[in-house]
């Protein structure tokens, strides 16, 4: 793993906090990830990994603090921020009654993907679902759901991939494909929550460890986050 970085952060959080009923689930998180970095977000169950990712993806509103992704503030420009991120969540977030082709076609329209057909074909071939593109998604296995979810997350060529347990449901071939397309893809910044500590060395350039919502270890950030300076 590398720790010395000179790039400006592509993702920066400033005292990001989420409170539910007086309980701080995420507390004063300040990280600054450089472009192209691949960060493993680790910690025990309930450490706040999923909540942090949910805040960064704009699904959950922070109680305090802010974050910027590719210069777009979470609070001020959420729509622009969402265009810059791809999200691979716990649930595949796919329409079961639609085919893989229709699912990606729908999301391509939502994201305004230019010339979607070649992009969809490219991704479906890359994740190994092209031969089953006309079948209902409901008949595909959990592993294929996850592959398709990865294709959906990468469809609009995001600058950053936010992933929550991305290996879930994938067989070894699927994990290899995940590494190639996402976790070790050149140019793509990745922040992925994972319990697969054994695999972190294989793809991550840095680690952020959470305990009870606080950052207790950070080998991924550049210095600006620790100083708490704005981007």
């Amino acid at each position: 793993m590398t720790t010395a970085r000179i790039e400006a952060p592509i993702l920066q959080t400033l005292a990001l906090t989420k409170r539910y009923g007086g309980l701080d689930v995420v507390r004063q998180v300040a990280i600054a990830l450089p472009a192209g970095s691949r960060t493993a977000l680790v910690g025990a169950n309930g450490a706040g990994k999923t909540t942090l990712l949910a805040m960064l993806s704009t699904l959950v509103t922070p109680s305090e603090g802010d974050a910027t992704i590719v210069g777009h503030s979470l609070k001020a420009r959420p729509a622009a921020l969402r265009r810059a991120i791809g999200v691979l969540a716990h649930a595949p977030m796919l329409y079961e009654e639609m085919t893989p082709l229709e699912n990606l076609g729908f999301f391509a329209r939502l994201y305004g993907v230019a010339q979607p057909e070649p992009r969809i074909e490219e991704l479906l071939r890359a994740v190994g679902v092209w031969n089953r593109r006309h079948e209902a998604t409901s008949v595909l296995s959990r592993g294929y759901h996850q592959r398709l979810a990865l294709a959906r997350a990468l469809l609009h060529r995001p600058a950053i991939l936010l992933a929550d347990e991305p290996e879930t449901g994938l067989d070894p071939e699927g994990v290899e494909m995940l590494d190639e397309l996402a976790l070790r893809a050149p140019g793509l910044t990745v922040l992925a929550a994972t319990h697969r500590v054994d695999r972190v060395e294989a793809w991550a350039t840095g680690v952020v460890r959470l305990e009870h919502g606080r950052v207790v270890e950070d080998t991924a950030s550049i210095a600006v986050a620790r100083q708490g300076a704005p981007a």
């Binding site: 993806s57 704009t58 699904l59 729509a79 622009a80 969402r82 265009r83 991120i85 999200v87 969540a89 649930a91 977030m93 796919l94 329409y95 999301f107 939502l110 994201y111 305004g112 959906r152």
Partner: peptide
């Protein structure tokens, strides 16, 4: 899938 809708721009 509702989350997927909300995650879009």
């Amino acid at each position: 899938t509702f989350d997927a809708l909300l995650l879009s721009p």
